[in-house]
């Protein structure tokens, strides 16, 4: 299973499924990371975490710990 935290900077990936505890999962989905959504991995913060993504035309930041809940393909 490949997850978002493993995606390389500069890559484009598609969300396959979400895992994790309910409230967190819902919040990540509400921000637009639903099944089939395209994500562009923009960059990592200077200290390596969190990561910055472009999703549905805006910039979103997530920690790697949360990104690990997003299964991608």
């Amino acid at each position: 299973m490949k997850t978002l935290d493993q995606a390389a900077v500069g890559s484009r990936v598609t969300v396959k499924r979400l895992h994790g505890e309910r409230a967190l999962k819902r919040r990540i989905m509400e921000m637009g990371l639903t099944k089939g959504a395209e994500i562009f991995v923009r960059k990592l913060a200077p200290l390596g975490d969190p990561m910055e993504l472009t999703v549905r035309g805006y910039e979103l930041t997530l920690r790697k710990a949360e990104a690990a809940l997003v299964e991608i393909e």
Binding site: L24, R27, I28, M31, P50, E52, Y58, E59, L60, T61, L62, R63, A65, E66
Partner: peptide, 12 residues
């Protein structure tokens, strides 16, 4: 508990 999740919009 673990540190709170960090899900935040970065406005232009």
């Amino acid at each position: 508990g673990e540190a709170a999740p960090f899900v935040m919009e970065l406005p232009p």
